[in-house]
Computed example of a mutant assay.
Amino acid sequence: MIIKTIRAHFTASVFEPIDKIDLKDGTDVILSIIINEPEKSEDLWAVLDKYTGIIEGPPDWSSEHDHYIHGTSKKGQLNKE
């Protein structure tokens, strides 16, 4: 089995190669389709809305973010010393 990757354009049930393809006429092939769609750009609020309520974290995550991100001592521990 030989694997070749080419780009193609699909029109009216026909794949038209964009890249040069070096095959003999009558060669049987198997096509794997990867649709190359442009990425949809989401604004920040859409991204935040998508993840709201699904990310788990410790209950003190917002007040102790320096501890969880940078490894500093917890603020609550500093007050007890």
Rank of each mutant, 00 (worst) to 15 (best):
S62L: 12
G76N: 10
I33N: 02
I35T: 13
D49C: 02
K50M: 05
E37Y: 07
F10H: 13
L48W: 06
E16T: 15
E81N: 11
E81T: 07
L31A: 12
R7T: 05
G53V: 07
E16F: 08
H65G: 00
A8S: 07
I2L: 03
L44I: 14
D22E: 13
M1A: 11
D43Y: 04
A46T: 14
H9V: 10
S32F: 08
G71W: 00
K4V: 12
I34G: 02
K40W: 01
V14C: 00
I21Q: 04
K75W: 04
K4G: 04
I55F: 07
R7D: 04
G57E: 07
E64Y: 02
E56P: 01
K74W: 05
S73C: 01
E81R: 13
F10P: 00
K50Q: 13
A12N: 14
N79R: 15
I55T: 10
S32V: 10
V14M: 01
K20E: 11
P38Y: 02
H65N: 11
E56H: 09
D43T: 09
K24Y: 04
P58W: 07
G26D: 03
G57N: 12
D28S: 13
G57Q: 11
K80H: 11
D28T: 14
E37Q: 14
I2Y: 03
G71F: 00
T5P: 00
P17L: 00
K80M: 08
S13G: 02
E37P: 00
E56Q: 10
K74R: 15
D49P: 00
W61P: 01
P38I: 04
K24A: 15
